[in-house]
Amino acid sequence: MDRQWGVLLLLWMMAMAWLGHAHETVPTDADLWHEFERSADARLLDTLILRGAFGQAGIPEFSDWILRNEEWIARIRALHPLETPGPRCRARR
């Protein structure tokens, strides 16, 4: 019984250490924005939107930024083929 408690405690400590490490290495919104400006990675754009980072910490408002970046408007549209009418959309009532 005591060994089972010991193993349980050890495994919980490992799980918490993992989470603690993840907490310490979380990038800030500003870090992600600089990385996005450098790499133009679409996933980072989604991450910034998911975090609600636009308009904060020196990052421009999304509407201002997208108006200045027409190539991103085209790129975002190309990424979402489901929005274009297809057989599935037509079948939907």
Partner: peptide
């Protein structure tokens, strides 16, 4: 709880990195 956390920890860590 440990089994539950073991399965969901990678997802929670991902959320931490992506959404904060």
């Amino acid at each position: 709880a440990l089994g539950l956390v073991a399965v969901t920890l990678p997802w929670a860590t991902r959320n931490l990195r992506v959404t904060g």
